[in-house]
């Protein structure tokens, strides 16, 4: 038996289905599309997943199951684990965010930049990570792009997404905790100096100037929902903390 779990949601052109064994346990996850944009996304997905797997022994195992001139279907083995709820926000999810950041550093440090530009996942949201025995596996590589952003972009996107969903996003304690994460990234050389000043604005600016990566989904990203005033307030605190040690 199969189930359709997502039908071209959030501006995407991709279907997500799963199949199950005779006792109802999930076996495989399929992503497919019959539109030009959707097929392009799935091509990105397979390139991204292969790149990720080449740098990190992960459970992610994706292959092309069907391909025609107008259609593509990818198949991956179901990964058992938990996915934190994105709407719980930064404070409730910080344990998971730390684990993802450590994982990010491990993977991206092993990669080779071109002119200081690194590959990006492009949608490193907390619900695109599965924790298998507390080991993060990054899934959903549809927005993968090669050698396009300074190191740290995906982690910042994740952290600020979670901040946006937090009830206390401007609380000093929350921002202090967040800055600890940025310092961790910095200490591991996984935060480009470009992001040391006004990291939130710089991350938003990157998305705005690379609209083609996200197309009609760009303006729906949580990070783009911060008001100008919130961006200024958050950045002023983070910039100060990040540059204290310099």
């Amino acid at each position: 038996m199969k189930a359709l779990l997502r039908n071209c949601q959030h501006g995407s052109d991709v279907y997500i289905t799963m199949d199950y064994d005779s006792i109802g346990s999930p076996k495989h996850v399929y992503k497919s599309s019959s539109t030009f944009n959707g097929v392009q996304s799935l091509n990105n997905e397979i390139r991204g997943a292969k790149w990720y797997s080449s740098l990190n022994k992960s459970l992610l195992d994706i292959s092309v199951a069907e391909e025609t001139e107008f259609y593509c279907k990818l198949k991956s083995t179901y990964i058992n684990g938990i996915t934190p709820l994105y709407y719980d926000g930064f404070s409730k999810n910080k344990k998971y965010i730390y684990l993802i950041i450590s994982h990010y550093c491990k993977v991206w440090q092993a990669s080779t930049p071109i002119n200081e530009l690194y590959n990006i996942h492009g949608d490193l949201s907390i619900d695109n990570v599965i924790f298998n025995d507390s080991l993060p596996v990054i899934i959903d590589w549809e927005h993968f792009n090669e050698a396009i952003a300074p190191i740290g972009f995906d982690s910042l996107n994740l952290i600020f997404e979670q901040l946006w969903f937090d009830d206390k996003k401007l609380n000093p304690d929350t921002l202090l905790e967040l800055s600890e994460m940025l310092k961790l990234l910095k200490s591991k050389n996984c935060l480009s100096p470009i992001f040391w000043e006004n990291p939130l604005k710089k991350t938003i600016d990157f998305i705005s100037t690379h609209h083609n990566i996200w197309e009609n989904q760009a303006d729906k990203l949580p990070i783009k929902q911060f008001s100008d005033q919130e961006v200024i307030e958050i950045d002023s605190i983070l910039t100060k903390i990040l540059n204290l040690n310099n």
Binding site: L4, Y15, S32, S34
Partner: peptide, 9 residues
């Protein structure tokens, strides 16, 4: 393309 989703079954 949302209309054709049942074909995925």
């Amino acid at each position: 393309e949302k209309r054709e989703a049942a074909l995925e079954l």
